[in-house]
Structure formats: C-alpha cells, structure tokens
Write a protein that binds this DNA or RNA. Sequence first.
DNA 1: CAGGATGGAGCAACCGTTTGCCGTCACCGG
DNA 2: CCGGTGACGGCAAACGGTTGCTCCATCCTG
Lengths: 339, 339
Amino acid sequence: MTIREVAALAGVSIGTASKALNGQGKLRAETRERVAQAARELGFAPNVLARGLLAGRTYTVGLITTDSFGRFSIPVMLGAEDALGAGQMSVFMCDTRDDPVRERLYLDMLLSRRVDGLIVTGRRIEPRPSIGRSLGVPVVYAMTQSLDTDEPAILPDDQGGGEMAARHLMEGGRTRLGHITGPERFLAARRRAGGFCATAAAAGVRFSPSDVLYGEWSERWGREGARILLASNPRVQAIFCGSDQIGRGVSDTLRQLGYRVPDDIALVGFDNWDPMVAGAEPPLSSIDMCLVDVGRTAAEHLLSAIGGHPTSGSHIVPCRLVVRGSSGSPAADPGPGTA
Amino acid sequence: MTIREVAALAGVSIGTASKALNGQGKLRAETRERVAQAARELGFAPNVLARGLLAGRTYTVGLITTDSFGRFSIPVMLGAEDALGAGQMSVFMCDTRDDPVRERLYLDMLLSRRVDGLIVTGRRIEPRPSIGRSLGVPVVYAMTQSLDTDEPAILPDDQGGGEMAARHLMEGGRTRLGHITGPERFLAARRRAGGFCATAAAAGVRFSPSDVLYGEWSERWGREGARILLASNPRVQAIFCGSDQIGRGVSDTLRQLGYRVPDDIALVGFDNWDPMVAGAEPPLSSIDMCLVDVGRTAAEHLLSAIGGHPTSGSHIVPCRLVVRGSSGSPAADPGPGTA
DNA sequence: CAGGATGGAGCAACCGTTTGCCGTCACCGG
DNA sequence: CCGGTGACGGCAAACGGTTGCTCCATCCTG
C-alpha cells in the first residue's frame, strides 16, 4: 500500500507516480491516468506522516480544553472541526481536566507531534495565564482568553446576550425586572448582568446592578434565588436567568408558588442547552452563545495564522435569542420560536 | 530543535545522540549525560512523525463516535484517553454525526494517518454494521457492537442495571412496581426492562413484561408516563425510570399530583447524569453505567490487540447503583448515597 | 542535415530519527 | 612487542513521499 507498489503496477518510477498523483511536473495525460488507475486498484492512500515530514507541517492542530469536554467545549470543538476538516486538517483533542500538570504534558505531546497550531478552550472564571507565546506554533483562544490580551481570542458576546434578554423581556411592556445568575467572580456573569442593567437603564426601567442576585450555576440556587427575589419584589414581571439550570429552578419554583409562566412572570435563560430548555414547563426561552460559531471562527483565525497572517486581540461572536413558551408576551403569545 | 542540533551541541554524531537519548547502544555514562544535558538545554522533543515513519506505527488511535460527542460518548472517550495516555498514545476523535458519508471520510483520513487502532463508539438502537474487518488495523467497539458479533465489543450491563434497580426498589418491601422507559426499538431499553422483570419475578413480585411503559427518552414522556401509570395502577410504590430525563419528568409530575417521593413512591433513574439527578427534588437515585470504565476497557483491549493479542466477542462492564433521596426506604431513609 | 527546443520520465537528495554494523583506540595478556 | 578483545562512537541505510534537476528522445526549424 505504498507509492512504490503503485509505481510498479503502473510501470513508472516512484517520482513519476508521485507527480502523477499530485498533479505536479509535466507528464503525459495517459501516464497520469495509468498511475491513478493503479492507485485506485490498490486502494493507495499516501502516508500523511511521510508527507508531513518533508513538508514541515502535519496538517494537524491540537485542541486543549480545560473543562472535561463539557457541554461548552463540545460545540466549540464541533465548530473547529468543521472549519478545519474543510481544509483537510485533523484535530487532536486533549482534556486537561483543569490540571496544570496535565496541560503541560499534553502541550509537550502536541509539540512533539509537531501540530501546526493550537486552539485553547474551556470555560474560565477569568482570563487564563497564557499557554506560552513562543511555542513555535500559532495559538488561538476560544471561549476563553489569555492574560496577554493581544493573543487572539474568540469570545461569545456575554454582554450582548444580556442586552438581548433585557430587550426581549421588556418588549411586552414588562418593567419590573429581576436577574438571578451565577457567582459574581465569573467574568461572564458580570458581563451578562452588565448588558442587562445597561439596556434596562437605557429604556428608563429601574434596575440597578445592586439588584442582581449572584449565587451559583445550579438549579438549587435558581429555586432559592426565586424565593429571595419574590420576597423582596413580589410584583416582578420578568426574570433573566444567568443559565438554563438556574432558569429551570426558577421556573419550577414559580409554578410551585402558583405563578403562571409566562403570563404572570416571563423567563429567559442562558446557554440554550437542549435537555434543560426542552424539559422545562413551559419550554424555556434562552440566549444561545452560538458556540459552534465561536469554534469555527477560532479555527479560521488559526488557519489564517498558519498561513502567515496572524490576528490578535479579542473577537466577539454575537449571541442569538431563542424564544420559547416561557417568555410569550403577556398580551399575546408570539408563537413558536424564531430559531 | 532537531536531534542534529543536540548532537552538535554535545559534540557527537546524530546516531550517538539518538542512542544516548533512548538508552540504546553502548555509550559511556558521561556521553549520555552530556547529550541529555544538551537536549534539556535546547528543549528538544523528538519528532514523533519521523520516529513513527521508521517504527511503522504512529502511537495514535482513532476514535469514531456517532452521537455528536454527546453525554454518552464523552465519558467513554475520557476513559479511553486515560488508558491510552498511560501508554503515551494520542487519540484522534472524529464525530460522524451519524452520517455514513462522514464516517467513510473520517475512516479514510484515519487510515491514511496510519493510526495503530480504532475505537468505534456511540449509542445505537441496535448493533451497527461493521466498520470493516480488513482495514489493516485492529478495531474495538465501545458501548455499541458490530453485527459481526465476534468483533470485540465492550458494553455496559444494561440488564444488570435493571436487576440492580429492581433489587434496590424492592429492598424496602415495596412490591407494587412500575417501569417507564424509552422506545422499545432500543436494545438497551429492552435489556433494562428484561433485567427488571426477571428480578421482580424471581422475588415473587407480580410485574410482567407487558407492564413496561415504552415511550421516548424525554422528560415530556416521563410526565405523560407517570400519569398513565398512576391511572392504571394508583397504588404503585416504586418506579424504575429508563433514563434520568424520564425520571425527572416522573418526579415532577408525582410532586405535582401530591405524591411524596420517596415516602409514597420511590424512584430510580438511569444514566446518573449529574445535572439531571442533582436538579431533581429530591435528588434522583440512578444507575450509573460506568462509561469511563467502558472506555478504559475498550482501550485496554485495543492496546492488547495492537500488541498482537486480539480479543473477540462482547465484554460486559457492570453498572453501579447510586442511591440518593428519591429512593430512601419508606420506613427509614438510609441516609446519603453509597457513592 | 545539424542544432536547438521541448516534452516526458527518472535520479537522487531530503525531511528527522533509529539501529545494525563496522572502525578505532586503548588496554591487557602472552 | 604483538595480537586479541572489548568498549565506544560513527556511518549509512531505511521509513515513504516530494521535487528540482538531469537526461534522453523526438520534433521542428534554419
């Protein structure tokens, strides 16, 4: 199954066979066809290693993730795979499980495999330490960013997502808002809250940053947060939840306490995570970070860098609002979602 | 950063440097140390491609999954990665998105990259067509099996899981049972139901295969199934749910209808999927398929096959029961789970 | 008819590493 | 003093494929 066999069968030299298969050199069309036929017959596939050895590149990129292939990393990977697969590149995926030792290990492995580039992904509380500036290969961060802010990073638009949620919830004329979200130490939580507050303020709706209920990314906190919010603000009309899990807890609790969703209180979640939004009753409207796009964009930037045109700094990928039953207008339900 | 530089710095020939770094040949200890020092200084990492080219293997395996890196494939991949990482092998992950064309494409890619072996995974309704018997590399199926039943496959013990659930639910003396699960066309659903029925029968409890409620793998069906079950069997004491999502729907509906879990009705789910079991109220007991073990075992079989000792046929990995609040004894809650 | 142009195919070097074999040097024993 | 032996290290082939250069034959043109 090597090119040697193909050349022998076609009755040409190895070099000629190679040229025939790659469309190089000057060969008679008949010769090309004869070689192609031989290759087909033998099921020949060129050894990518040998080719890479000579070309100095491997047509391979490394993808390092820190969050155990969680539901955030997966779509990013899929997007990256899409963009790279089109360019005939393959992806080595490594899960560091957020362990610096493992990260170092995987990094060495990827470098000794001479990957052409690196994508670093994984949900983080804050920007992460750079994985290294002089590794000899380009690096792009996806859904996370380096403390070295000029290293290229592709990020979801958390702030824009918060703005979208606010605009959508206020659409039906609702003005008494609430926001229950994850821990304040998460940059993403603060950005979402920031966008939400700013949009409310711009619309003349009273909702200050101190009204944001920070807690955990869990259903339990959603339940608890809902009770706290209702205690302090019993006439709330719309709640923006920082994650679908929180949204789920809020939704359950509202129903338990006798509120109707969306008629009494409208809800919007965040992440658009199918098992969560679909299982809620009614199904939960949610902000989708379009992580597949984030991954695809990251891969495109990486390809560009590999091609000699590096980019730098943050690039924001817009979110998308998916409307479901939990946020129909109090007057008239707008019907099925736009996505 | 090649061995040439290292050799030059150490003042030896390339061949000698290679031997020094690999512990081969007969060299003075001082020479070895000098080379090692030079390598360290230059941050040398051997080019795995070049090494592989000569060795005829790549220290790489392909992992083909059909279910979009879903929550079933991920733990399998992690387990496989663990077992392979220890042997210094890397994993190419490919997601076919259940598309035969993509599968073919990825397969060709992996073969032209000369992977040393292949793991095929992904939840399937029934055994899948063989990916190919004469690919030139060993193949192990994980969490799925080939129609060619002698190809090695590592499978979770669905039947045993059903037995475990039955035994656990009957422990507290409960004898009026129910089972709400996914579509009957899924082999896994039938196996779980089979184990459940057999164990009930063996204990002299009346529960026949025709009592199983087959439906979908969704929360919605859980809700619906719970109502159906209660309508036909209002005094049911324990329900085995074929997935945690179904369990979640059942749990919510029971609470809504005024039943107390676990005091009136005990629940056990399947999959032990954290966001689902933790978010349920009370937290859902569940059968864990130990998919990490499945993945690890698959990788071990693959390594063995690569080493020249192929295995064949199905190998079953046992499940594990994780007890939580939803299945405490009606007499006395046994307290926190055993896991 | 002779010389140059051109088309077509082969040769060999190269990518980076490993490893079997051989040469060399020093030391030891006879 | 000479031959043998063992310790050390270098040489070169090999892995599979690519490509610049060379070489040969043919054809065309002056």
